[in-house]
Nucleic acid binder design. Structure first.
Lengths: 151, 151
DNA sequence: GTATACCCCGGTTTTCCACTGGGGTTTAGT
DNA sequence: ACTAAACCCCAGTGGAAAACCGGGGTATAC
């Protein structure tokens, strides 16, 4: 219910977004197939994730032949927390029904929840300070390094 | 695989530990039944969690009639991260086999993992700075407040 | 010696995640 | 217009992990 986990979903989405960020300069859309092949992601699954990202305003889509996906804004204006919230959080609604039965509003439960929210907040601050541009840059310099070692 | 989540398991364990911390002064052990009834936890499940906490050195057990559980050390010497690591982490071994097949060591995956570990670390620092004593104190002052509002 | 309470270990149920499939609809190119 | 390429929507399926239950054993106070 209140988690900061690196799931397949998050990882796949970020991998795809790194690709989109890398091709952002060209202005051309990228197709699901290309991304999926590049990053070894099941394409039908990736399709769902991209649909979610689109509804969340992270990416834009172009339908029809020669269509595909592009980032909705510049890579340095999309941070990782945006992505995570879009994927997991969009339908974590208030859900404050069931107030007739004391669902679990014990004092102890509230105290624990409080601390968890604090931890959760600390993690979110980290995720918020990194953008897709940062991911792309890190990827590039890392690959540069690998090449240096190779020769 | 790398998560900071408030699961049932964690919450149950912490609720039980708050009870044990509250009764720590008496020196008397608390029985599973009492804790389970107090905090509305399925007792057979709580038994498993307490067994794990015992193996992790968080609590001690006394067998036989008039037995039960007590904290293994003072409430202010047990922080929340200790508890979480004991519950989830004890058997998250290295598991660095499968280096013949490149399991998923892509450059992009490594970059993402790096950032996630940083976020994870930030959350752990929060969990580490709160002890069972803190939980107990917060519970008590919260209950005091509720009473003030009631009259 | 007996009741009490922990101990161990295996099974069941439930829930959720990763993944798949079958249709549709929009659009570029001819 | 026609067709093919691509996204769109929604409804499943399989498997694994989490939550939970039960049976029989063992230590200990009285």
């Amino acid at each position: 219910m209140l988690s900061v986990e690196l799931s397949c979903k998050s990882e796949y989405a970020l991998l795809a977004l790194i690709e989109l960020a890398a091709h952002y300069d060209t202005g051309e859309p990228l197709q699901i197939r290309q991304i999926a092949a590049q990053q070894n992601i099941p394409d039908r699954y990736l399709e769902q994730l991209l649909a979610t990202l689109r509804r969340g305003g992270i990416i834009r889509s172009q339908r029809g032949a020669k269509g595909g996906y592009t980032l909705a804004r510049e890579p340095w204006k999309i941070n990782i927390l945006d992505v995570i919230i879009c994927l997991d959080g969009l339908e974590n609604q208030p859900k404050d029904q069931d107030n007739d039965t004391q669902n679990d509003k014990t004092v102890e439960g509230a105290v624990i929840l409080e601390i968890w929210q604090e931890a959760h907040h600390a993690a979110n601050e980290i995720l918020q300070k990194y953008t897709l541009q940062d991911l792309r840059d890190r990827r590039d310099s890392r690959q540069q390094l690998d090449f240096m070692y190779y020769i």
